[in-house]
């Protein structure tokens, strides 16, 4: 029975099963998924927007997955960001860190995680979440203190 269960579960892992993506257009903020999910630096509201922009650059540059956080709280893990740029430490991911964008691409869901393969960033509204007005900067050392 155990072997049957493992076989059935493994069947769900075949790429062919998961290849039925759905075309979607979504609007949301490009976020750093590790800080958002882990709570390592505070609640979800503190690790988005301008307050967290520098940290989002750090995490994105190191290849931590970026996400697209929509207004209703859904996070889409971004696997590709346009035809010429990857989403693992790629340049576009850096330039769009913390920006609110509308993106179109293919949606996939698996094991509780939503994914989007972005084919085109339709519009870039820049940073619209001025979270520094409530949280200053997160983490607090993100902006180095000026030397005397």
């Amino acid at each position: 029975m155990k072997r049957l269960l493992a076989t059935l579960a493994a069947l769900t892992a075949l790429p062919a099963w998961a290849s039925e993506g759905e075309r979607i257009t979504v609007t949301g903020e490009i976020i750093d998924t590790w800080c958002y999910y882990s709570g390592v630096m505070g609640g979800p509201d503190a690790v988005v927007g301008s307050a967290h922009h520098t940290c989002a650059l750090w995490c994105s540059a190191s290849g931590i997955p970026i996400g697209l956080l929509t207004e209703d709280g859904t996070v889409y893990t971004v696997l590709n960001l346009g035809p010429q740029d990857n989403a693992t430490g790629g340049d576009t991911a850096l330039t769009l860190a913390s920006h609110t964008v509308t993106a179109e691409g293919m949606f996939y869901a698996r094991d509780g995680i939503n994914y989007i393969v972005v084919e085109r960033v339709v519009s870039d509204m820049g940073i619209t979440n001025l979270s520094h007005e409530d949280y200053d900067v997160v983490p607090s050392f993100a902006i180095p203190e000026p030397k005397e």
């Binding site: 062919a16 998961a18 696997l79």
Partner: peptide, 9 residues
């Protein structure tokens, strides 16, 4: 991950 989801490997 993208290969697993899309078959682009």
């Amino acid at each position: 991950v993208m290969c697993e989801l899309t078959g682009d490997c």
